[in-house]
Design a protein around this nucleic acid. Sequence first.
DNA 1: AACAAAAATATTGTAAACAATTTCTATGGC
DNA 2: GCCATAGAAATTGTTTACAATATTTTTGTT
Lengths: 231, 231
Amino acid sequence: MAETNSTNDAVRVGTQAQEVAGLLIGDIISGRLSQGSRISEPELSRKYGVGRGPLREAILKLEGAGLVVRAPHVGARVVTLTQTELSEIFAVREALEGMAARLAATRMSDQQLLDLESLLKTHASHIHEHSGQSYIDQEGDLDFHYRVINGSCNQRLIRSLCDELYHLIQMYRKTSGRRARPEEALAEHQMIFKALKDRDGELAEMLMRRHISRARREIEQFIDSNNQPMS
Amino acid sequence: MAETNSTNDAVRVGTQAQEVAGLLIGDIISGRLSQGSRISEPELSRKYGVGRGPLREAILKLEGAGLVVRAPHVGARVVTLTQTELSEIFAVREALEGMAARLAATRMSDQQLLDLESLLKTHASHIHEHSGQSYIDQEGDLDFHYRVINGSCNQRLIRSLCDELYHLIQMYRKTSGRRARPEEALAEHQMIFKALKDRDGELAEMLMRRHISRARREIEQFIDSNNQPMS
DNA sequence: AACAAAAATATTGTAAACAATTTCTATGGC
DNA sequence: GCCATAGAAATTGTTTACAATATTTTTGTT
């Protein structure tokens, strides 16, 4: 009768190291492990119930993703994003995701476009109902961008954006209780969608770049207004 | 005297894992470990004279860089680049390095520009002397691109390009004995340099994108002409 | 002889013990 | 009272041994 594994999770999907890496990523991008937190091997080893070997592998993986930084003989910490680094991330994201939008305009299937359209409708109704709060804002935004990125059909591009940059962006969003602007974002998403539907790659790229550039400026502004009273 | 370390290398700079990772990268991008080669832990553990722990860490690191692929309980292999993957890499490189050129146009110091100019002069004389062969072609090309990338002053961009994409490109260049076209490349480098010197970011980006796009088409052509007789 | 199944081998994944380095703490001197 | 230094504790780096999985070889059957 449903003999479970050693952990109370579902059946083991891969190796312990992979599982712990997933848990660690979740703890970081959810904010349970805040920026700059020490990653103690013995402590987390006990917490996750695995040996130090698999845990070290997980840490190594996260280091490759840029979520933690390590110093020899000193240990690992959750990365601390400065404003400069966050701006750099968004600058790279702008170039990469602009390219993704351009490719997606010619490569997305009709079905993918229909799905994207219904996603936007769902998002719109949620905004009207709850007058622009709730989790759907962050998640919906992510969902839209993930679909466009995947629509590019460029595996390397997908990996760079989803496995590296977006983890960092999610981490920042959670740790800084910044309020998004769902109405404006939705309007921009709808314009991007129209360009995709029209198979207009140039326009899709330009709109996506402006969309991300706008988000970057908001963040820079937010940080500025928050750093001031902390001095 | 000069009491050396356990290995005959210079003094240990970091940890064994880091050192082995460097050696592994060297073996891969030099072609000593060709594409698709098995990465046997016991074998390489003996070869490099370290335990399996540090070697595994090195493999993990290379997996993060995209140089090796791992399968659970099966092992690691040097990545095999298909034409599709190579095209994808160059597409991403085009977007990223175009951005780097645009940023470099406004951010490179006058001294950096002078150094870049002298590098191009050195490169030109080498081509005229040896009529376009010798190692300087590959190395010189890399050197030029590295300087422009670093001129962007965007650390994340630098890391993406130098630590991930360029390793893969170097690997491909070595394993496929493809001949470069140093004269054409130099001419294009000189045009890019002029745009940088004029602080014309838009032009620098466009020229860099065309330069890389051209290289991509050459590679695609080369692969096509090589894959045909192998069918 | 060819195929399938089962045992043997080898390799990877994991845990535990040891070594080396760093960090914290306490003691002594100024 | 403060700083420097020496020792102790804790953590990371590394090796070794063990367990689990995959691959290969062997053996038996059709």
